[in-house]
């Protein structure tokens, strides 16, 4: 039984990791006041370029780097359109997702059925062999630690650093931030780019670690769950982690319940993550003041600098 629990927790962490990456990136983006609905598309672009790089060079870490770069470049398209050309953020974000789905399928066409060397779980000599905590703390793949590290860095950045405050100021009142003299558009570019890089890394995690292969549309809705997670977390980094693990574990638990022969209809279990999203959204939306306190006030609004 303890073995089953440890093993299940390990599996849940791998299911949560792509969500942690993508949601952390989107959180920064939204905190700066930009709503980018293109997460799913950027994840797919990251996944395919990461995989292609790893397949061609045989170097999976390099593939991961490329996944981040590809996600970043994709987000810059979005940034140019919405921040410089002031297009509608919702429509542009949706377009980015559709574009990313198509582009990734096109680029990935020749890589379907290719195989690469997966980035393996780490194994530290003494530590990973400790009973119970050994595997739980020191037995994951390196990207699990990277995602947690980046999340912690983002939490620190937002609450403790000067630039984090400025980013939040830009998201809460772009006009005032501009009046004080901060480069609002430039800061938002940076936030969108960070979000793109993180979505790309999340996609790269899928194609390089989760299942070392490329398949069309392999993000399978994780980008959308990441978007919901940011709202679920009411724009707070520590809650992103909680939410990601919750969503990851529901996915894994439904399969676990099946394998254990509990006789719960699988179709019902498959609905659970989405029901959970709706329930949580309803619960947090009930408290209108709280949501207004947390949500970036300028979210989704275009900003035109006026002198």
């Amino acid at each position: 039984m303890p073995d089953l629990i440890i093993a299940s927790v390990m599996t849940m962490m791998t299911a949560a990791t792509p969500l942690v990456f993508a949601a952390t990136g989107e959180l920064i983006c939204e905190r700066s006041g930009v709503l980018n609905l293109g997460v799913e598309g950027m994840m797919l672009i990251g996944a395919v370029f990461g995989f292609a790089t790893a397949a061609v060079t045989g170097n999976a870490p390099l593939g991961l780097l490329m996944a981040g770069v590809a996600g970043l470049l994709a987000s810059l398209i979005f940034a140019t359109l919405t921040l410089s050309l002031l297009s509608n953020q919702v429509a542009t974000g949706l377009a980015l997702t559709i574009f990313g789905t198509g582009l990734s399928a096109l680029v990935g066409f020749d890589y379907v059925g290719e195989t690469i060397d997966q980035i393996a779980a780490i194994h530290l000599p003494v530590l990973s062999d400790l009973p119970v905590v050994g595997r739980l703390l020191f037995g994951h793949d390196p990207l699990v630690y990277l995602s947690l590290g980046l999340l912690a860095a983002v939490a620190w950045f937002l609450s403790r650093s000067r630039w984090g405050m400025i980013l939040r100021a830009v998201g809460d009142s772009d006009v005032s931030a501009h009046a004080i003299g901060y480069p609002v558009v430039l800061i938002r570019y940076a936030a969108v780019a960070f979000g793109g890089m993180m979505a790309g890394l999340g996609g790269g995690y899928l194609s390089l670690v989760y299942t070392p292969l490329w398949a069309e549309n392999m993000a399978a809705g994780r980008g959308w769950i990441a978007l919901a997670l940011v709202v679920f977390a009411s724009w707070r980094p520590e809650r992103v982690l909680f939410g990601a693990i919750l969503f990851g574990s529901i996915t894994i638990l439904q399969l676990n319940a099946q394998a254990a022969g509990l006789g719960i209809p699988a179709a019902f279990m498959s609905m659970l993550p989405y029901i959970a999203t709706i329930v949580v959204l309803v619960l947090i939306s009930r408290d209108a003041i709280k949501i207004r306190l947390n949500a970036p006030a300028c979210l989704g609004r275009p900003f035109r600098a006026e002198r």
Binding site: A7, M10, Y210, M218, I252, A259
Partner: peptide, 19 residues
């Protein structure tokens, strides 16, 4: 409930091995 969804197939395999 799919013929082809690699991440889900991998999840299913992991869960079965966990058990």
């Amino acid at each position: 409930y799919t013929w082809f969804d690699p991440p889900k197939e991998a999840d299913a395999a992991k869960v079965l091995m966990d058990q």
